[in-house]
């Protein structure tokens, strides 16, 4: 990479490189989708038919918990490719702006997360037998899912970077990721519950604010602290 390139051009170069490398390893994207499909089938089969009001609550919980589990599978391997072929160490030797690096990784993970998020959303809706159009409240749901993914992605990238060199990172990642994702998960669950009940305006009671506060906090912390993980 050209020395002294602007932050944005560094971002574009790293992002393009990361996308190509991700697309060359499709298994990484498929594994979380298969995981969420199997989990949702097992949960729906195990619980069976439920009364309508409980079914709606269960659908909401099932959707977000499965999503968090599936995403943790993906996030835990965010730096696997870089680590395997030594790219991460190589990139450390370039005079890269850590912010461009974080932004490129964040953008990639955020985009690829949708490949897990959309099928999980469709599976959850289909397997729960929730009546109505699958795209009802589309924009509201999209807003909540985007906000949830933004917070989780920022934290996932940062955590993945700090456990990258740990001996037991496969075990350590979920142990750290799940408790730290609780605020985002709870806020997302309540926001989606409001949408399902047709009370979108009720979100002004604070849940959306909590979700957004955590998004902003995790994204800012990620952008600031990521530099510590890449400095040689």
């Amino acid at each position: 990479m050209r020395e002294g390139a602007s932050t944005f051009s560094q971002f574009k170069t790293i992002f393009r490189f990361l996308i190509l490398s991700e697309l060359a390893n499709k298994e990484r994207m498929l594994a979380p989708v298969m995981f969420s499909g199997i989990t949702l089938i097992l949960l729906s089969f195990g619980v069976g038919d439920l009364p309508k009001d409980i079914n709606l609550d269960f659908y909401n919980t099932k959707l977000f918990v499965t999503l968090i589990l599936a995403l943790s599978l993906f996030f835990s391997r965010v730096f696997d490719l870089d680590r395997k072929d030594g790219i991460h160490d190589l990139m450390k030797t370039y005079n890269l702006n850590p912010f461009s690096w974080f932004a490129a990784k964040f953008a990639l993970v955020f985009l690829v997360s949708w490949s897990t998020c959309i099928p999980t959303f469709i599976f959850a809706k289909l397997f729960s037998g929730i009546s109505g159009d699958i795209f009802s409240n589309f924009w509201q749901t999209l807003t909540i899912l985007s906000a949830t993914l933004a917070g989780l992605t920022a934290m996932g990238v940062l955590l993945s970077a700090i456990v990258m060199n740990a001996d037991s990172r496969a075990l350590l990642f979920p142990v750290l990721f799940f408790p730290l994702s609780v605020p985002v998960l709870l806020a997302a669950l309540h926001c989606n519950d409001h949408i399902l009940q047709g009370r979108w305006k009720g979100l002004s009671d604070g849940w959306l604010q909590i979700l957004l506060i955590f998004d902003v906090t995790y994204v800012i912390l990620g952008a600031i602290l990521f530099s510590e993980t890449v400095e040689a």
Binding site: I162, A166, L172, T229
Partner: peptide, 26 residues
């Protein structure tokens, strides 16, 4: 756990430091 699974040195100071900040946010 993170402290125990990292080798001593700068990497451990940074990784556990970042996690400490995330915990305080919670």
């Amino acid at each position: 756990l993170l402290w125990s699974s990292l080798p001593p040195g700068l990497g451990r100071i940074k990784s556990t430091g970042i996690l400490g900040i995330l915990i305080a946010v919670d």
